[in-house]
Computed example of a mutant assay.
Amino acid sequence: MNIRKMIHAALMSSAALALAPVGAVAQQNMNSDKNKQSTQRQTMQTHNMSDDAKAHKWREMRQNAVKASEILRGNVSTGLNPVANVTNLILSKDGGEIEYIVYKTQSPIMDFYVGDGYTSFNTVDLQTSPVPGGVNVYVDSSAPVKGPEEIKITANEADKRLVSRVLDEQVELGSGIYEIEDLLINPKNGKITHYVIGSEPDVLFSDGRRTIRATEVAYRNGAYRSNLTMQDIDQDQPYEEDWL
């Protein structure tokens, strides 16, 4: 009887020793899974916070700056339906802000253009969409339509005042000559806040884009110039490059 008890005790002890490592490994695996799940949750939270922060920055940008090229691609409407397409933007004599929006009116019945007109920037509202590419112009339907021939611009002023021509110009920096690819416009008052340029000198279509504050650019002797270098500009970029 004692021998049987001794054998039984020995077998139980061996089983306990054999099971102990298995239980420890299982516990370690459970802890590892919990750590992985915690890390995944933290990563997702960080990612969501990053997305939220980026969305906030985008909305902030849209309140303070829209691209001139977006306005040029936009429609003019007096309500729900577009009645014209923007054809050009005319800057003030000092080149610091949009003074007029020129458009081509469309027939409300047939899909063809029937004439040109323009309106002062201070009489319109820019309607920005939450996605890039959507900036339309809302005008008061009671406002009189004026013909563009009423705008008096000399040939010497055209290069500086017609945005379509400004976007074909270059700016000379201390580190080279760069293409002006766009303008950033304050949608509330039409002022130019930044020039958008290519990131590589003497390249017509650059892979990257940078902004220069308009206060750092001057139009002198028929050319746009700035004393900044690209290194200076790289340290002052308020917006994501993908948004330019």
Rank of each mutant, 00 (worst) to 15 (best):
M1E: 12
I3E: 15
K5W: 07
M6H: 09
I7L: 13
A9T: 01
M12D: 04
M12W: 05
M12Y: 01
M12I: 15
A15S: 10
A16M: 05
L17G: 10
L17V: 11
A18E: 07
A20R: 07
G23F: 02
A24D: 02
V25S: 03
V25I: 12
A26N: 11
Q27L: 06
M30H: 05
N31L: 12
S32Q: 10
D33H: 05
N35S: 11
Q37P: 00
Q37K: 13
Q37H: 11
T39A: 14
Q40H: 04
Q40L: 12
T46Y: 01
H47T: 14
M49A: 13
S50G: 03
D51L: 14
A53S: 12
K54R: 08
K57P: 00
E60V: 00
V66G: 04
E70F: 14
L72S: 06
G74I: 08
V76F: 12
A84C: 06
V86I: 14
V86D: 11
N88I: 01
N88T: 05
N88P: 05
S92L: 06
K93A: 10
G95N: 03
E99Y: 07
E99P: 04
Y100D: 01
Y103D: 09
K104G: 01
T105R: 14
Q106A: 07
D111I: 06
G115D: 09
T119V: 15
F121A: 13
N122T: 11
T123K: 14
D125Q: 15
L126K: 09
S129M: 01
G134Q: 09
V135S: 02
V137G: 00
Y138L: 10
Y138F: 10
D140T: 09
D140K: 08
S141D: 14
A143G: 01
A143P: 01
V145A: 07
K146W: 12
K146D: 06
G147A: 07
E150A: 07
I151L: 09
I151M: 13
I153L: 15
T154Y: 12
T154A: 03
T154R: 13
A155Y: 00
E157H: 12
A158R: 08
R165Q: 15
V166D: 02
V171M: 10
S175V: 03
G176N: 02
I180R: 07
E181F: 02
E181I: 07
L184Y: 01
K188C: 03
N189F: 04
G190A: 09
T193A: 08
H194C: 01
D202G: 00
L204F: 08
F205C: 05
V217G: 05
A218Y: 08
Y219A: 03
N221W: 02
Y224C: 00
S226E: 11
N227F: 04
N227A: 13
T229R: 06
M230K: 08
D232Q: 06
D234G: 04
P238F: 07
E241K: 11
D242N: 11
